[in-house]
């Protein structure tokens, strides 16, 4: 999925999403602002400061800092192996960086297990779909509600009081997401039997079921056809628009990135080589070089 073709850096097709440039330099001015299409971008939600991540001798992330602001769609782009997925893994607690700080909602986050990060309201999807194949679509999405379930084991064993009431209440929420993503007809299908495009959608549904404050999407459109990509873009925009969910996404399709995102981080060989609005990034010489494959020093 490399983005070698240069025309993909051409201006986005739907310029409606092009944003009024806000203050992009982190740490500087973080006044809330309203985008051209009327979405409110708030203060800094997640702040990554000087993150360095090593695997043995390999530095997958080299001293990277950037922030994600409330309500925005933040894209992370870069060639294969640039360290994008590693960055998401740092945010979601899979990897603990050797250096640097992760700030969330104004607090510095200590080293956390992924399930603890989930409880902070951070949900994600994976580059290689990670669904529960043996379970139905409905059960997969219901698992997304886990962090909100309160009934204890005894209540569940007796299926009594809170357990049943809770199950029904959460089922209602999940049905809304099922309607939203237009997957009513596969509710009871075991996930293992679904085609690729639908699996990606179910994975998004599961992440949405958690009602996350921050949603991380690792290549949500990889391997999809044009139509599926359009559907997925629409869903992402709607999630951001209707629920005000902050989204960080990795994507190779430059057209999609330029359309969807408010701000873009560009990575290459573990370094950050660009950060700004889609327009700024598109005109950034380092970014153009990276995508055109200019030799590295």
């Amino acid at each position: 999925m490399t983005m070698q073709d240069s025309h993909s850096l051409a201006p986005g097709r739907h310029s409606a999403r092009t944003t009024t440039p806000g203050p992009v330099d982190q740490g500087a001015d973080v006044q809330p602002y309203v985008t051209a299409d009327g979405r409110r971008i708030g203060g800094v939600l997640m702040d990554l400061r000087n993150i360095t991540l090593r695997f043995g001798g390999v530095e997958a992330i080299k001293n990277i800092s950037f922030d994600i602001r409330e309500g925005e769609i933040r894209a992370i782009i870069g060639p294969n192996g640039a360290g994008k997925s590693s960055m998401l893994n740092v945010i979601s607690g899979f990897y603990v960086p050797q250096e640097g700080e992760v700030w969330f909602k104004g607090f510095r986050r200590g080293p956390m297990r992924p399930y603890q990060v989930a409880r902070l309201g951070i949900a994600r999807t994976f580059q290689n779909i990670a669904l529960f194949d043996g379970m139905t679509v409905l059960d997969n999405i219901m698992t997304g509600r886990l962090t909100m379930m309160k009934s204890n084991m005894l209540q569940q064993a007796l299926w009594w009081g809170t357990a049943e009431r809770e199950e029904i209440a959460h089922r209602e929420k999940v049905e809304k997401i099922i309607d939203f993503l237009e997957i009513q007809n596969i509710r009871k299908t075991p996930v293992g039997r679904l085609p690729y495009g639908l699996k990606k959608r179910v994975e998004l549904a599961r992440a949405l079921a958690a009602e996350p404050g921050l949603l991380l999407l690792d290549e949500p459109m990889a391997g999809m056809n044009v139509e599926e990509k359009e559907d997925m873009s629409r869903f992402i925009l709607d999630v951001n628009d209707e629920f005000g969910t902050t989204i960080a996404l990795i994507e190779h399709d430059m057209g999609v990135v330029m359309d969807l995102s408010d701000r873009v981080v560009v990575m290459d060989y573990g370094r950050k080589i660009g950060d700004g609005t889609p327009d700024e990034v598109r005109n950034n010489q380092a970014v153009i070089d990276a995508y055109l494959g200019v030799a590295h020093d």
């Binding site: 399930y115 949900a123 529960f132 219901m142 698992t143 992440a207």
Partner: peptide, 22 residues
């Protein structure tokens, strides 16, 4: 119930289970 879903989640893909809060 939810406990059963957690068990099956761990069975089917423990990494994804952890990411949804198991």
């Amino acid at each position: 119930g939810m406990l059963g879903r957690q068990w099956m989640a761990i069975r089917d893909m423990d990494i994804a289970a952890e990411i949804i809060g198991v």
